[in-house]
Simulated assay, not measured.
Amino acid sequence: MSKLFEELDYRPTPIGPVILRRRHILSLGEDVFEIMLGEEHLMSSLFTASEVALARLGLAELEGESFDVVVGGLGLGYTAAAVLEHDSVDSLIVVEMLDPVVDWHERTLIPLDPPLAGDPRCRFVCDDFFALASSRKGFDPAKPGRLFHAILIDIDHAPDRLLNRRSGSFYSPEGFARLADHLHPGGIMGLWSDDRPDSAFTELLASVFGEARAEPVTFTNPLRHDREFTQTVYLARKSAAPA
């Protein structure tokens, strides 16, 4: 049996120390991997339903046969891995501000199978997603101004519960309008939230993109089957160009 607890890495970052740790859950007979920001939980491999749903719901909205996708926020990689399950995805850029998180994936400290770094369609960009979203150059350093079919975001806990103040102006009509500039007409923006659906926020998205909805994702805690959690995936479609 593996150790009951192990800290795999600890690194300082501009927004605080990030820690990758592994716990063995005896009642489940499995290892659980967690990313911490100081004392704050960022992600656990025990709860991944909504991160996977972000990718699957977002890509299900697309029409066509080949797509270029951006994922904002790497974490344990479950959203990116779910994107790469689709053969229709030609390319994936994962934007992650924290270098240690990218390093964990490149060193395969995080046990995704197959690893993200082994897929030639996937590329990591170590940068601030929110800064790139508001810029003219966008998300691909090699191709400034490049457009994408889907941009899927899992960074903050919710639009009004931020990890860091740098992202605050993003959750506004102006911030989303700048993001929409990086999407093809008809492209999809997907956003993960730890909270239940917020009708006012959905209306804000619709006012910018033209079409938006909130998809609740409900799942049970494997350690407490009597307790359900509901998180949200917001989906917004950029209006198609006039004929």
Rank of each mutant, 00 (worst) to 15 (best):
M1K: 10
L4F: 14
F5Q: 10
T13H: 09
V18R: 08
V18A: 09
I19M: 01
L20K: 05
R23E: 13
H24A: 09
I25W: 09
I25Y: 10
L28S: 13
L28F: 13
L28C: 05
E30N: 12
E39V: 15
E39F: 11
H41K: 13
M43L: 01
S44E: 03
V52C: 12
A53F: 09
E63P: 05
G64M: 02
G64A: 02
E65N: 13
S66T: 13
F67L: 05
V69M: 07
V69P: 00
V70C: 04
G75A: 06
T79P: 09
L84I: 07
L84C: 05
H86I: 00
H86A: 12
S88V: 15
V89K: 00
D90L: 06
I93A: 10
E96I: 04
L98G: 01
D99V: 04
V101T: 03
W104C: 07
T108K: 12
D113T: 11
P114E: 06
A117S: 15
A117T: 14
G118Q: 09
P120Q: 11
P120T: 02
R121Q: 13
C122W: 11
F124M: 08
V125Q: 04
D128W: 06
D128C: 07
F129T: 02
F130I: 01
L132W: 10
R136G: 14
R136S: 15
R136I: 08
D140H: 03
K143F: 15
P144V: 03
A150I: 01
I153P: 09
D156Q: 06
D156K: 00
H157S: 13
G168T: 10
S169V: 04
F170I: 06
P173A: 00
A177R: 09
A177M: 10
R178H: 15
D181F: 14
H182Y: 04
H184M: 14
G186R: 02
I188F: 05
M189P: 02
L191W: 02
S193I: 12
R196Y: 07
F201C: 04
T202D: 14
A206K: 11
A206I: 13
S207K: 11
G210S: 12
E211Q: 13
D226S: 09
R227N: 11
T230C: 07
Q231I: 05
T232R: 00
V233K: 07
V233H: 13
L235W: 00
R237Q: 00
A240V: 03
A240L: 15
A241P: 00
P242G: 08
P242M: 07
